[in-house]
Design a protein around this nucleic acid. Sequence first.
DNA 1: AACTAACCGAGACGGTACGTCTCGTCTTCGC
DNA 2: GCGAAGACGAGACGTACCGTCTCGGTTAGTT
Lengths: 211, 211, 211, 211
Amino acid sequence: MPQHSHDTQIDESQPQPLTKDPSCRRRSQRCHQAILSATIELLEEKGYSGVSVEAIAARAGVGKQTIYRWWTCKAGVIMEAYADYAAKSVPMPETGSVKEDLRQILHQLSTILTTTSTGAALAGLIAEAQANPEMADVFREKFVASRRAMTRTILERGIERGELRPDFNMDVAIDVTYGPVWYRLLIKHAPLDETFVEELVTMLMVWMQVQ
Amino acid sequence: MPQHSHDTQIDESQPQPLTKDPSCRRRSQRCHQAILSATIELLEEKGYSGVSVEAIAARAGVGKQTIYRWWTCKAGVIMEAYADYAAKSVPMPETGSVKEDLRQILHQLSTILTTTSTGAALAGLIAEAQANPEMADVFREKFVASRRAMTRTILERGIERGELRPDFNMDVAIDVTYGPVWYRLLIKHAPLDETFVEELVTMLMVWMQVQ
Amino acid sequence: MPQHSHDTQIDESQPQPLTKDPSCRRRSQRCHQAILSATIELLEEKGYSGVSVEAIAARAGVGKQTIYRWWTCKAGVIMEAYADYAAKSVPMPETGSVKEDLRQILHQLSTILTTTSTGAALAGLIAEAQANPEMADVFREKFVASRRAMTRTILERGIERGELRPDFNMDVAIDVTYGPVWYRLLIKHAPLDETFVEELVTMLMVWMQVQ
Amino acid sequence: MPQHSHDTQIDESQPQPLTKDPSCRRRSQRCHQAILSATIELLEEKGYSGVSVEAIAARAGVGKQTIYRWWTCKAGVIMEAYADYAAKSVPMPETGSVKEDLRQILHQLSTILTTTSTGAALAGLIAEAQANPEMADVFREKFVASRRAMTRTILERGIERGELRPDFNMDVAIDVTYGPVWYRLLIKHAPLDETFVEELVTMLMVWMQVQ
DNA sequence: AACTAACCGAGACGGTACGTCTCGTCTTCGC
DNA sequence: GCGAAGACGAGACGTACCGTCTCGGTTAGTT
């Protein structure tokens, strides 16, 4: 992960509606980090709805205003707290095989969603986004777009290599890749496990492969 | 009141954890209906987060206690208000073709989710369910289970008829059927339209058909 | 107490704003008595503010409507429940001495107020009456007027006998007789005991006696 | 703000169980005063029972929590709102005559109780105190104790000067001084007027004077 | 080295909604 | 047909957070 070292730069270099003051002349790294850590702790302990700005501030030993100075709302803080897991730690796989690439991506995604509090966080964020279009935009950009773009690249490369047929609908293919994962995450009717990922990838390949 | 026995049967025949007193000896049909109607009106006007128990009570001309007497929380009311759309109005298609059956089901689902306030309601409910496991159970039972069961039946019939191969994972197939729909509903990165349904059904058939 | 035997008749023969239907065509003696008993029990257990119409009904094994059928409010029930203690059980003393008559009256009053729940009841009723002029009227008539009238008679007899001088203000004398007792009952800054009654009677006699 | 320091001294110099946080690091004088004013307005308009915390907050243009931040209950607010009338405005009279001193005290008290809403307020507070021992303590301390102490001083000076005999019961004397006043205030069977005060003082002097 | 802007913690503020409570009235159903 | 049981409209209760706003007391980056 070569890009991992300049995290901070990535998080704050791009203007985001749910955070403030991108110029960010002076901000205490200590309290910035304390806020994000407190957020993750609270989310793990009490779930998404158990997180309140007041609780974050108290846990982080920070004034509420310090939070509102840099973020517009609770969701903004949570998004930033989970930005690492969900957005940056997605290495573009380069196995030469579409199936293996997809397998790696979905495996990594489902692992993060099930073994950390990221699943609860993102489910809550999706929930919030239903009531807040601006938040929905940021969520898509931050947590959805990069994975979709990466997957698109993988599929396009597969087509170029002749591994995949060129006439399937790319957007639908990506929806079929991620939709079932989010579905299991949110509805919780069945586990989001290795078997599931394997079946899903197999199914995708059947459809997209040259027949 | 000839419709009295009819209503009672529908509303109260199935025990619901988010409602109270299933024995339900006496309750005013007038205010029961007024509450559900007010809930739908408010959800259409202001979205899920704009609905509050206080607003429902005011709109329905009802005391707050009357709502809390029969439901444990806002989500319970909304679930019951949308139970008709989501659960009852699912006719089992009988076209003799799996593809056509699926097309009908997904068409009807996507139409309801996009042309009524049901989409917003269910998105909000899924959100709510993330923080409330009991609610999640009821949601699955009320809004997810019946459609999954129906789809399972359709696919099993397809296998019996030899239309589908018998060796695909049934649960994953159903996830792949509904996952992308919920995904587009919640993430809103692309429209949940006729073309999407068509592509999705085609993809599913390619995978499941005898090759 | 010769008049004690026709209690019921006394309570209901005179129209009272806080009770209903003075004609009293049909009323269950059983539940009437159960309500009054439950009221006294509750007042003894939880104090005036712990009494609610709902609690009385539950304790008496009676519907709320049965209470509201005969009384207009909680205070009406409590007044009737304590009517015996406070109004009827005041035997006119006939000792031939004003001082002894007053001593008996005040002794009996202070005993009732301190050894039964009557004190708490009347304190609460006075409180209620502050916010409800109609209740104040009934309270005065039921709990104050008869004692004042009796005391007036005693003092007038004392004047006739030449025991008391005839030129003191009768109303003020009665206020000075009862005011300090209520004052100690309500403010609770000092005990409402035998010594107090003795001092008070002595003081009154000094003032009113022929000097 | 020249009156700033003045207010603070008066409002917060004495610890009060029905108010919170006596240290009181920062509080808005504006809203503190607005709350007390709104309380008095409402009490004058609607009487004691017509005052609710919600109404006070609305009238004062203040959040409910701002009231609950500083007081534990409605009665605490009302007590503080009337503390001025009842506690501060009691000048120790120094006429050299016990009778004149008592006359002044009782005149001032009866005037306040009958010409302002203070009578209604205190009657309501006494009522409230019947159900709440802690409130009763504060009430005694705030509205009763100072007048009793002052009266005691007056009577003791009278004894020293030889104006009064030294062998009457001081506590009973004070009860006889104030009891009849509260009695007329609460029972309202007769006016709390100048004539009454005059008769009462006369009576007291007859009893206490050297004979 | 002093100045000065800003950030910092703390938490009060006006609000909104929560879920509970009790009032006094109205309705149903069983005895 | 009476009466227990309790649903109903109303509205206050006291709590939890929201997002904004002061308040002094540090910092940190000029000057």
